[in-house]
Simulated scan of single mutants.
Amino acid sequence: MLTVDFTRFPLAAGDRVLDLGCGAGRHAFECYRRGARVVALDRSAAEIREVATWFAAMRDEGEAPPGATATAMEGDALALPFPDDSFDVVIISEVMEHIPDDKGVLAEMVRVLRPGGRLAVTVPRYGPEKVCWALSDAYHEVEGGHIRIYRATELLGKLREAGLRPYGSHHAHALHAPYWWLKCAFGVENDTSPPVKAYHRLLVWDIMKKPLATRLAEHALNPLIGKSFVAYATKPHEPARAAL
């Protein structure tokens, strides 16, 4: 289930991609399939081991084109182990809401992104996320949980302050918002509640089958209750220096 829309965020074969806070690796896998040279970085050693295993399986099955590469590594988003201008593309999906120093993370992403490079950032959308917080303290008051809710204008403002130029945005995963409202209402750790179980089955069916009816419904509902806000930006080219 991808949050970044690659029709709005084009990726070329050979692009150097950093999936920052890759988690289970969904965006890293898609970039690898598209022929990119991918680095998936996360602070969780367990997640990185799993992502590395899947990269190896994809390689063995020929799921990535010739020239594509994939590396999974542990790392700190506030101290990225890469030189300046290392990547053509940086993706950070559902991560910034967890990090106290979000401006520091943005500064690091801008540093490793080459001039003219592209950034995709996704965060929980303000409205649906606010409902979750109102329904359940346990939803966000956990170690490593969400510490802030972004308004779209706030996130776009922080991108601009970091020196980036936003060029597009949209909302995603409208069908997932009611699922999390149900989870918060019946208990975030309670997976046996009949409404939660029934809605989870619907989501699994939708992800596996991708029926036209739910695709059209989600497309119509995304502007209203899309669970995620997605923004795209570029790093401007440095102005040419005047000749001495």
Rank of each mutant, 00 (worst) to 15 (best):
M1V: 02
R8S: 03
F9N: 08
R16G: 06
D19N: 03
G25E: 01
G25L: 01
R26S: 11
R26C: 08
F29H: 11
C31P: 05
Y32P: 13
L41K: 15
L41I: 12
A45D: 13
A45M: 07
E47L: 09
V51M: 02
V51W: 04
A52F: 10
F55I: 07
R59C: 04
M73Q: 07
G75T: 12
D76R: 09
A77N: 12
P83M: 00
P83G: 00
D84G: 13
D84T: 10
I91K: 10
I92K: 07
S93M: 00
I99L: 08
K103P: 03
V105Y: 00
E108K: 08
V112Q: 09
G116A: 06
A120C: 11
A120Y: 10
V121G: 02
Y126V: 05
V131L: 04
L135V: 04
H140V: 11
E141T: 13
E141N: 11
V142Q: 15
H146N: 01
I147A: 10
G157L: 06
K158H: 15
R160F: 06
E161Q: 08
P166W: 00
Y167I: 15
S169W: 15
S169H: 14
A177N: 05
P178Q: 08
W180I: 08
W181A: 15
L182R: 09
K183L: 10
K183I: 03
G187C: 11
G187L: 08
A198L: 15
D206I: 15
D206S: 14
I207N: 15
M208Q: 15
K209S: 10
P211H: 09
L216E: 05
E218C: 14
L221M: 13
N222P: 09
N222W: 03
L224N: 02
K227V: 03
A233P: 01
A240E: 06
R241G: 06
R241F: 03
